[in-house]
Amino acid sequence: MALLEVRDLHVFYGNIEALKGISLDAEEGEIVAILGGNGAGKTTTLRTISGLLRPRTGTVTFQGRNIVGVAAHAIVGLGLGHVPEGRRIFTILSVEENLNLGAYLIRSQGALLRARKAAVYQLFPRLAERKHQLAGTLSGGEQQMLAIGRALMSDPKVLMLDEPSLGLSPLLARSVLKTVREVANDGTTVLLVEQNARQALAIADRAYVIETGRIVLEGKASILATDERVQKAYLGGFEAMTSA
């Protein structure tokens, strides 16, 4: 049984069916990329897994337990971390306070908290330099680091990342994704929603392609990277047009 199993999720916004039966798996220690165009349902999938949205039907099984209906804050405690789209850091708090909140559930264990914070600072030395600065004053790349670091503070078994390279320069995007690979190498499972398909596929083990709320393609990242259907569905049919 996989660490995280999603089965036949149907999610509605009012009358609009955003997810029409999404199923996916993530094994321990692998990076699973979720690709697809804007509005395809990638973010909705992540938000449903982390309990921010309630599916109409379907199950999310984490370590053998169905977590649909469990409150979002409790899901974090089970070991699912989520870095939301647009970073959503607490702009009026300092960098350090943001990180502390990431370890909210272990707030009484001071030593453990400090150890994790030290690990995050080691991963992102830039954050250590700016720990007393208000988070809202950080640059885009630093904010992304903070968002990831904040999620790592809960020491998640599965880390879900929603468009971590959004709005970053190619160089920064690459360095962020490299960090993601490092995190996965340490044994954390990563669910990665990413617009930058090539870079996502380069670091991922497997990938799913979502289109209008359905999974249209799945497989090993290295194979999907050369699959022309990925380009068609996601990269926008360069191929389709030139051959037409």
């Binding site: 921010l52 979002a72 804050h73 405690g77 971390g81 708090l93 909140l101 990431g102 909210y104």
Partner: peptide, 24 residues
Amino acid sequence: TMIGTAMRALAVDHDAARLMGIDV
């Protein structure tokens, strides 16, 4: 305190706070 910090965080973003494990 951490709970106090959580109160301030809630003024910014409820969902993000939930994702920190904060019982809103």
